[in-house]
Amino acid sequence: IINNLKLIREKKKISQSELAALLEVSRQTINGIEKNKYNPSLQLALKIAYYLNTPLEDIFQW
């Protein structure tokens, strides 16, 4: 999986903590996703895309 979450999140000036709060997950979860240590569920990936107002395929590429 190619993961552009960190790049997109930083472009939008959103911290890991802010995104985690919006998604109701821990900051460690966001960190793990960004470091490719954790693959989000489809539901979480869709929520990330929604809150970042970015197409899912721009954030994650399988």
Rank of each mutant, 00 (worst) to 15 (best):
L5W: 00
T29G: 03
R9W: 04
G32W: 14
K12A: 14
K35I: 12
T29N: 04
I2D: 07
R9H: 00
L23C: 15
K37H: 14
I8R: 03
E57S: 12
E24F: 11
R9N: 01
I2G: 10
L46Y: 10
S26W: 04
N31D: 15
A20L: 02
Q61F: 12
I14P: 01
I59T: 01
Y51R: 05
T54L: 05
T54V: 13
L52M: 07
R9F: 04
L56V: 14
K11I: 10
L22G: 13
A20R: 02
A20S: 07
I8A: 06
E34R: 01
I2C: 13
L46A: 06
G32D: 15
S15V: 04
L7Y: 13
L19V: 01
G32T: 09
K35V: 10
G32C: 15
N31E: 15
L5Q: 02
Y51P: 01
K13S: 10
V25E: 05
Q61W: 12
K11N: 11
K13F: 09
P55R: 08
P40N: 01
S17E: 13
I33T: 01
K35R: 13
L42E: 06
A45I: 05
E34S: 02
L19S: 00
I48M: 08
E57T: 11
K12N: 11
Y51I: 14
N36I: 04
E24I: 06
R27P: 15
S26K: 09
N4W: 06
A45D: 01
I33M: 06
I33W: 10
T29W: 11
K11V: 08
K12C: 09
R27H: 10
Q28D: 15
L5A: 02
I59L: 11
L56H: 03
Y50N: 07
I8K: 03
N36E: 08
S41T: 12
N3I: 04
S41E: 06
T54Y: 06
I2S: 12
I2F: 12
K6G: 08
I14V: 10
T54F: 05
T54N: 03
S41G: 10
N39T: 15
N39R: 15
I8F: 09
A45Y: 03
I59Y: 02
L22P: 01
I59S: 00
D58I: 07
R9K: 01
N36C: 11
L23P: 00
L19M: 05
P40F: 06
N53Q: 14
I30C: 02
L46R: 11
Y51S: 06
P55S: 09
S15Q: 06
L5G: 00
E18N: 09
L7V: 15
T29P: 01
Q61P: 15
I48S: 01
I59K: 00
G32Q: 15
N36K: 12
Y51W: 08
N39Q: 15
L44T: 05
Q43T: 12
T29I: 15
Q16D: 04
Q43K: 13
K13R: 13
N36P: 02
N53I: 05
L46F: 07
P55I: 04
I14K: 05
L56G: 02
E57W: 08
D58Q: 12
L19R: 00
K11H: 10
P40L: 09
A21G: 10
A49S: 10
Q28A: 13
N4I: 05
Y50A: 08
L22H: 13
L52A: 01
E34M: 03
I59C: 02
Y50W: 11
S15A: 07
A20D: 01
I8T: 06
G32P: 01
E18Q: 13
K12V: 08
E18R: 13
N31M: 14
N36R: 10
K13M: 14
E34G: 03
L22I: 11
S17F: 13
W62N: 07
A49T: 03
K35D: 13
K11D: 08
A45Q: 10
L19N: 00
I14S: 03
G32R: 14
I30N: 00
L22D: 08
A45R: 08
K6Q: 11
Y51F: 13
N3K: 02
K12H: 07
S26R: 08
D58Y: 08
P55C: 06
L23M: 07
N39L: 15
I30G: 00
Q16L: 12
L22W: 13
K37N: 11
N53F: 05
I33S: 02
I8C: 07
I30W: 03
T54I: 07
L7F: 13
I59H: 03
P40R: 01
N31W: 10
Y38T: 10
Q43G: 12
Y51C: 09
L23R: 01
E57K: 11
K35S: 14
I30S: 00
L5V: 08
I33P: 01
A20E: 01
Q28W: 12
S17R: 11
V25W: 02
Y51N: 05
A21S: 11
L5S: 02
Q43E: 12
A45E: 02
I2H: 13
E34T: 02
R9T: 02
T29H: 10
Y51T: 10
G32V: 08
I14T: 05
N53V: 06
S41Q: 05
A20Y: 02
F60K: 00
L56Q: 02
P40A: 06
I59G: 00
Y38I: 15
N4M: 06
A49Y: 02
R9G: 01
Y51E: 05
